[in-house]
Simulated assay, not measured.
Amino acid sequence: MTLVMENVSKVYSDGPKEFKALDDVSLELQKGEFVAIIGPSGSGKSTMLSIAGALLSPTSGTVFLDGENTAHLSKRKITEKRLEKIGFVFQAANLIPYLKVRDQLRVINVIAKNKANSKGRELLEHFGLTHRTNNYPNELSGGERQRVAIARALINDPKIILADEPTASLDSQRGREVVELLADEIKSRGKSGLMVTHDERVLDLCDRVVTIRDGRLEE
């Protein structure tokens, strides 16, 4: 298992008031499995994804990333694990506006102290972006920006891909193309994928669909 969440809860406090965003959630991701999380706004989808990616700590419960309990890791180790093991794809591409396409991927290599640039070239070619390497984000279409974001998420060959509403800013055709790219990468390379989405048009591309309501999972 690349990702295991066991009896995870997340409680937010505002003075005497408490709000339980996640309530005893358990989930396991297999290699090569692409899972979608659906549910109404405010149901806990983004909180669950953030905890899965070690961006948030659970109030209770346990999260294992690639076999390691995140509660036993220092902040530095958790940061390293996110860089090495997890690729994030967000609702907005979140590209750095003053960097050309090729440099969007290089900056991750620099942060990770990874000197291999050939992977970046391979990914841009794989996603049909070779002709865009010298373009800035504002010169790309929405679909191209998301493809760059996916390539950037994959630059360090992560074992887990976490996607938060990756089709939200795209039309139906471009949105499906983006999720097809994610699904192909996950299945062909034996990664694990977890995607939060409201887009029911792409659910057929997933192996499993999990519904969350009021912080609890319904499979």
Rank of each mutant, 00 (worst) to 15 (best):
L99E: 05
M5T: 00
E122P: 01
L170H: 11
G190F: 12
A54I: 02
N114S: 14
S43N: 02
D164A: 05
T70G: 03
V101K: 13
F64G: 01
V35A: 02
G143N: 11
P16E: 15
I78A: 09
A36K: 07
S57L: 13
D164E: 08
G190C: 12
N114I: 01
R82W: 07
P58R: 05
L124C: 10
E122G: 04
S118L: 03
G44M: 00
N138Q: 14
E219K: 13
G142I: 09
M48D: 00
A151D: 09
K31M: 13
L205T: 08
L27V: 13
K45L: 06
P166V: 10
D207I: 03
A116I: 12
P16I: 06
I160L: 15
I155N: 04
T47Y: 04
K85G: 00
R76N: 10
F34A: 03
S9A: 04
V179H: 07
V8W: 08
M48C: 08
T62R: 15
D204A: 09
N69R: 15
E144W: 13
E122W: 10
A151Y: 13
H131I: 04
K75C: 02
S60D: 14
R176I: 03
L55T: 04
S13A: 14
T197S: 11
Y12L: 07
G67Q: 08
L182C: 06
R102T: 08
E200A: 15
K10N: 02
N117C: 03
R76P: 00
K81F: 06
R106H: 12
V202R: 12
Q104S: 06
R106I: 05
T79C: 13
V110C: 05
I51M: 00
K17D: 13
R201M: 12
E177P: 01
K81P: 00
M5D: 03
K10V: 13
G42D: 02
R132K: 15
G39R: 02
R121S: 12
Q104A: 06
A163D: 02
L83P: 00
E219G: 11
R152N: 03
D214N: 14
K20P: 02
K85S: 13
E219A: 08
K10G: 00
I155E: 07
S188K: 15
N135G: 01
T2E: 13
R82C: 00
K191F: 04
